[in-house]
Design a protein around this nucleic acid. Structure first.
Lengths: 238, 238
DNA sequence: GCCTTATTGTATCAATCTGCTACAATAAAC
DNA sequence: GTTTATTGTAGCAGATTGATACAATAAGGC
């Protein structure tokens, strides 16, 4: 029942920071292990017969139920003191296993961090066999995370800030069609600052990456906004 | 004589792309292994009792003879097909060792890539005990590198392009004091495009990160340029 | 219908930044 | 002193961004 050493690479793991956007704030998926009170990022080991990236993708697909996801590697964490056998022992104990003292999962690990931006509303958070829950937590209100997982989250936040506007346009966090205001909210939340409405609209439209669709009538007593979708062509300038 | 499994983490290594600037082009340090004709990036394994970053730093210090170096992690390479036991076997053979078929260094490896920008003229390239030479090679004229080391170099080049102007100002590649023309040459070489002399000067000076010193009289029959040094304060805007 | 209210899409103008040209100020050779 | 190559900076036009203004709605209240 414990993962076998023959199947997996030793001393290496991956961890994923899976971002979703509620319309108001950024949230990430956090696992809680059974009977241990330990909170952790979704992560795992790399099988000897699969690519690193595929291992991480498979993990995210399992936890979210999504079939098409985009992962971006942002940093690898290899400090000596980041590894700690206690959480794994506790987790095993909580599950009723006896963990041999020299088991490979208790050894030191170097972990590769990936982030993923996904549509909050399409996700079916699915716990794994070692955890009894997986839930969305606001990045401003995380539970105490085990080991260095909080540092990993912070690095991921830095990374999405830097990637926004180049690798990343924030549309992954929104439904297929969205309003300009929603897109701006995404940018404001990730960059953690207010953006000028008119300048933002002019700049994004000037980038020529959006397709305009019908109007959205929300029932509100004011002018209805247009819906846009990401146009999978010509990302011209940033 | 072969590295022992007790001392090192298995399945993980680091590789470093060490950049120097000759005044005309970017070069990197490449090792050549004895009697095997194999060229490789300087790299190594991580001791169980040291941080990942320290392992990589130690490696760069040994290969360059420098005491103060700055490393930047840029990517981790984990494709299934990147590992190949043949080079290690050949290297061992070239050294006269017998390498057991199941030795841990023949196993699959995930490698963490770091780059370093250093002053070309201060370096004493120093081979390790497995290699008979370490030399500077122009990035436009590299020897055929083993495994995926060429891909690692390309990723490093992308990374320094992106980091230039934010994390990195290119002054690491130059001596303590340098002229504006030299700094511009560094930027042009890294970005691989010509920059407008006047605009570059205005922009860099406007960033307020340089201190101006005395003039440099080279003996050339024209106006002498000022020398500048990097001012370790207030990196204002990019 | 007509007026009100909140919001959206765009225009406008000033302030700033960038590309480009021009030119005075050299340092050394002749 | 004259010549030549290079440097530092100014000046101007064009592009980009910040800030304000305003017309065009959607629906609710009367």
């Amino acid at each position: 029942m414990l993962p076998s050493e023959d199947k997996y690479l030793t001393n290496v793991s991956y961890d994923t920071v899976i971002f979703g956007f509620t319309g108001e704030e950024l949230k990430i998926l956090i696992l809680e292990y059974q009977n241990s009170g330990l909170f952790a990022l979704p992560g795992g080991y790399i099988r000897r017969d699969e690519n690193l990236l595929d291992a991480a993708k498979k993990g995210v697909m399992k936890r979210t139920g999504l079939k098409k996801i985009h992962l971006e590697q942002f940093h690898t964490f290899g400090k000596l003191n980041r590894s700690n056998p206690e959480p794994s022992k506790q987790i095993a104990k909580g599950l009723g296993y006896e963990m041999p003292e020299n088991h490979w999962v208790l050894d030191r690990f170097i972990t590769i961090g990936y982030y993923s931006l996904i549509n909050y509303n399409l996700v079916k958070p699915t716990p794994n066999k070692f955890s009894d829950s997986i839930n969305w937590y606001s990045i401003n209100n995380l539970p105490p995370l085990m080991m260095d997982h909080e540092e990993i989250v912070n690095k991921a936040l830095e990374a999405i800030k830097n990637d926004l506007g180049t690798k990343l346009f924030g549309t992954n966090l929104l439904p297929e069609k969205f309003t300009m205001k929603e897109l701006r909210k995404v940018y404001e939340t990730i960059l953690n600052k207010k953006l000028r409405r008119t300048t933002f609209q002019r700049k994004i439209l000037g980038m020529d990456i959006l397709k305009r669709h019908e109007k959205l009538y929300t029932g509100a007593a004011n002018k209805a906004p247009y819906l846009y979708s990401f146009d999978k062509e010509k990302p011209k300038k940033s």
